[in-house]
């Protein structure tokens, strides 16, 4: 075999290799254009919290001034009954009425510590002054001094609306808009869903190291189609 033939053989080999590469690249290009886009969206199951659950207002409804109660679907004032039926027994006792109320207010177990004996549409301060339901904080403050002091300057209690009173209306909630006067301890509550992505070392509860539930890049496997486009 001559040197020239060797060289031609080499040439042919080189050329065929080039074609293989070229065809490979063309196939790759076709693949890029024809396949679906790579879904690199790391999907974790979204936590759905209805906006209505989050109450950006008062925790409970306070009794208005003058006091209105709904009895058998009818709006009544306290005095609607209490002027008809006179309370004769002015001492602590078990009531046959107002069974819907739970009285759990520490040592304060007597209706007339706060309610007026004569006019049931009114409350009463310890010095005997009749007050309306709009002056509840004053009444509560007679016992809960430090809390009342804090509430007056805005440290205790909830503020709504505007922090800057010059730019809009500010609402300061009163005692009975958060606390039930008959059972004033703030109740335990249900809590909203916790985070999917946070871990905090060994001490963190509910961490199973073999479970990849808390991986922020965990891929959403099931179902295969986009779960949110089907009104999930």
């Amino acid at each position: 075999m001559s040197v020239q033939e060797d060289k031609q053989q080499e040439l042919r080999l080189g050329n065929s290799f080039g074609w293989v590469v070229a065809v490979g690249f063309f196939l790759l290009a076709g693949w890029f254009f024809l396949t679906e886009p790579v879904q690199d969206h790391p999907l974790t199951e979204p936590v759905r919290v209805q906006a209505s659950i989050i109450n950006s207002g008062a925790f409970r409804t306070a009794t208005p001034e003058p006091p209105i109660v709904v009895i058998a679907g009818m709006k009544q004032q306290c005095n609607s009954c209490h002027t008809l039926f006179e309370s004769k027994q002015m001492s602590p006792r078990r009531l046959a009425q107002h069974t819907e109320l739970t009285l759990n207010h520490g040592g304060n177990e007597w209706c007339f510590s706060c309610h007026d004996t004569e006019d049931r549409n009114k409350l009463v301060l310890p010095d005997g002054e009749q007050i309306g339901y709009d002056r509840i904080p004053e009444l509560c403050g007679k016992c809960h001094g430090p809390t009342y002091r804090d509430w007056q300057v805005g440290i205790h209690g909830k503020t709504l609306g505007y922090w800057n009173k010059e730019m809009g209306e500010q609402t300061r909630l009163t005692c009975s808009q958060c606390h039930d006067p008959h059972s004033p301890a703030f109740p335990t509550m249900q809590l909203l869903p916790g985070p999917n992505t946070l871990r905090m070392g060994e001490g963190d509860a509910n961490i199973d190291r073999h479970d990849h539930k808390h991986n922020p890049l965990r891929k959403w496997q099931e179902p295969k189609s986009n779960p949110w486009e089907e009104g999930h």
Binding site: M189, L191, G194, L198, M200, G201, G203, D204, A205, N206
Partner: peptide, 15 residues
């Protein structure tokens, strides 16, 4: 000590 804390608490009722 924040290392004693937990993010993933999940009680029926809080606190």
């Amino acid at each position: 000590d924040l290392e004693n804390g937990s993010h993933n608490f999940d009680e029926a009722l809080v606190p």
